[in-house]
């Protein structure tokens, strides 16, 4: 399944309007914002259709699932959007992650839990915002808002003394090569390793570079931690491969068209997260060129002056923090 879906769910009192564009979307936030109301409306429509009095407008079929029926719903749904309320504890299990991987559906999950087994994007974590009355003034209008405004997390431009890179191979090798000697560059060996590194006693100015496309599970806790520790800064491109693809080094209108609207190209059936797609695209686009990319080991061509500058320019925002002058 691919593409962006505009969804309207309403009854005589409430009106929800939002867009879903990746295979996994998470809704969380304060109590009493309408999360359960939204899922209840979808559940009633799933069971009774128009007889429920609920109206749903969406190009894809919207259904709800729970702990008791989730496997059957997933098996019997193709090209649908499946919603889970927060009582569905199954969503945090490995078996759930295995089951939804490679399916032709999108999933919307209400939860405050991390869901470490699911590679969801920091950009697809939303709260529900009520913004007054809709149309005839009898309905309350509710829309989604992005919960983590990553750009606002940059508390200061203080130079970093330490760079933590989520990647362990090509991405890490690139950043290690470009930072000044005054900056210690360490690999976290994956997203869960970041928390372990922050728990050490090092309180120096630190920049974290991680793959935003699959960093959703870590975001809430890291966000809270950063509010208490302004010495920690965070840079979340979609992935290292996305940075290279965005650099212009891989020429072609096709690549820039894909990057402008990835949701129109990336099929959830083939890619569990956008990060995997960007890696595949970069490998394919460079396979017969001097820039042949491998995730496991950095092609040294990316460290040539021109190539290095092109890649770093995409990550412009972190140049002053790392003291990079090219």
């Amino acid at each position: 399944m691919k593409g962006s879906y505009h969804i309207i769910v309403q009854n005589s009192r409430v009106f929800f309007e939002f867009d879903i564009k990746r295979n996994i979307t998470v809704i969380r936030g304060d109590s009493a914002t309408g999360k359960t109301t939204l899922i209840s409306l979808i559940d009633e429509f799933s069971r009774l259709g128009e007889d429920s009095g609920v109206n749903i407008s969406c190009e894809a079929k919207c259904v709800s699932a729970n702990n008791a029926n989730w496997e059957g719903i997933i098996e019997n749904t193709v090209g649908g959007i499946i919603f889970f309320d927060e009582d569905a504890s199954v969503v945090k299990s490995q078996i759930f992650a295995s089951k939804i991987r490679g399916t032709e559906n999108y999933y919307v999950i209400v939860t405050r839990e991390k869901l470490s087994n699911l590679p969801y994007s920091v950009d697809e974590i939303y709260g529900i915002h009520s913004s007054g009355k809709y149309s005839d003034l009898r309905k309350t209008y509710n829309s989604f808002f992005r919960l983590y405004d990553v750009d606002s997390i940059y508390h200061n431009d203080e130079p970093a003394k330490r760079l933590i890179v989520e990647d362990s191979n090509a991405g890490y090798e690139f950043f290690k090569a470009i930072v000044p000697e005054s900056v210690t560059c360490v690999s976290a060996g994956g997203k869960t390793g970041i928390q372990k590194l922050l728990n050490d006693s090092d309180r120096s100015e630190t920049l974290i570079v991680a793959d935003g496309a699959a960093f959703g599970s870590e975001m809430n806790e890291l966000y809270l931690y950063m509010k208490k520790h302004p010495e920690i800064k965070l840079y979340l491109p979609e992935s290292f491969e996305w940075i290279i693809l965005s650099s212009g080094l891989v020429d072609g209108k096709r690549v820039s068209d894909i990057l402008s609207k990835p949701e129109d190209v990336i099929d959830s059936n083939d890619y569990f997260s956008w990060e995997q797609f960007f890696t595949h695209l970069l490998v394919e686009e460079t396979k017969d060129t001097y820039l042949r990319y491998s995730k496991s080991k950095l092609n040294k061509a990316y460290l040539n002056a021109r190539e290095r500058k092109a890649v770093v320019d995409v990550a412009e925002i972190i140049k002053p923090i790392l003291g990079i002058c090219l």
């Binding site: 009192r13 409430v14 304060d30 109590s31 009493a32 309408g34 359960t36 109301t37 927060e86 009520s130």
Partner: peptide
């Protein structure tokens, strides 16, 4: 938002 509601319609929180 919802008018007169029952106790069951209170938020989970």
């Amino acid at each position: 938002v919802l008018g007169s509601i029952s106790v069951r319609d209170l938020s989970g929180g």
